[in-house]
């Protein structure tokens, strides 16, 4: 397990480094002069030159990259243009809102998707299976911003059951939870479908395996066979899928945060793009990338914990 963990960790570091390189190239390749953009049209050439020197744009490209690389690893993502605050601080301030949103989205998809998938697999080819199948495909097909808008209209505007906008009163946990329901549903509902489909398929596969026949031949109770013997194997690809899914939920979070006017990283990057606040854009992208890589690392480690064959590299 130690070897496996170190291996995954090293891979994660390499991925983050490559992302940094890509990100740096992107900034470098964006047409226009960052100093001119930052200072606006009324700045003089001398002012621009001074800023270029200040943020290191006069240095050779590899020196620039090395500076970006090393300062990013030490947590220094530069300063944002509008308020001159450190980008890292701004992003970290918004991050908890997005994390809460994403993990509630994962919560929905796991809490509904796994039982629905198991149920469909156990009741294979029954009416229940077909209904779950249709619903799954339907929620996968509908984009999350559409879900967000209609959920907002129905539950917040027409029925007035749930609050429409904001993240809730700070310090009031219950209020924040209530404000989380609709946005997280919008982010997670599609993944209920993905996970139900995935769990159904892998449950059918593991239920047909030889060892399930062995377990039945020893007269083990069917519930134990399904929810212990078969599910532990069937859940493995779902965990990997969820790791990837969280990446997609990060992008749906942008829509959800805009529609529900919630604070968060998505809203932050949206505003930053509108105001051409490039350091903030790159900083936010870098932080979410690291987050995504970390979550996938976690997913790999969980799979390794559950499956001894993966640990020993089979």
């Amino acid at each position: 397990m130690l070897y496996y963990t170190l291996n995954r960790l090293a891979l994660a570091l390499v991925i983050v480094s490559v992302v940094m390189l890509l990100l740096f190239s992107m900034i470098y390749l964006i047409p226009g002069d960052p100093a001119a953009v930052a200072l606006g049209p009324r700045a003089t050439e001398a002012m621009r030159e001074a800023l270029r020197v200040k943020i290191g744009l006069d240095q050779p490209i590899w020196v620039q990259f090395w500076n970006f690389f090393t300062s990013a690893w030490t947590g220094d993502l530069g300063r944002e243009v509008l308020s001159d605050r450190p980008v890292a601080a701004v992003v970290l301030e918004q991050l908890p809102f997005t994390m809460a949103l994403i993990f509630s989205g994962v919560g929905w998809s796991v809490a509904l998707g796994i039982p629905l998938g198991c149920w469909a697999a156990v009741k294979r080819n029954s009416l229940a299976d077909h209904i779950v199948g249709v619903i799954s495909v339907a929620v996968i097909a509908v984009p999350s911003f559409v879900v967000a808008i209609y959920a907002l209209l129905l539950f917040a505007v027409t029925l007035r059951w749930l609050p429409a906008i904001g993240a809730g009163e700070s310090g009031n946990f219950f209020d924040q939870l209530v404000h989380l329901i609709l946005p997280s549903l919008a982010v997670g509902i599609g993944w209920v479908g993905y996970i139900a489909r995935m769990v159904r398929a892998s449950m059918l596969e593991s239920m047909g395996a030889q060892h399930v026949r062995t377990a039945r031949a020893f007269g083990l109770p069917e519930s134990r066979i399904v929810y212990q013997y078969a599910l532990k194997i069937a859940i493995l690809p779902t965990i990997t899928l969820l790791g990837v899914g969280i990446g997609q939920m990060l992008s749906s979070a942008v829509f959800a945060e805009i529609v529900f006017a919630r604070p968060g990283v998505g809203k932050l990057v949206y505003d930053a793009i509108l105001t051409r606040n490039y350091p903030l854009v790159t900083g936010t992208v870098l932080v979410t990338t690291v987050l995504f890589v970390l979550i996938n690392l976690l997913a790999d480690l969980i799979v390794g914990m559950l499956d001894p064959r993966v640990r020993s590299g089979l």
């Binding site: 060892h211 499956d307 001894p308």
Partner: peptide, 10 residues
């Protein structure tokens, strides 16, 4: 089949 008869994750 002895390879498949036992559950691989327990």
């Amino acid at each position: 089949d002895p390879m498949g008869a036992l559950n691989p994750v327990f």
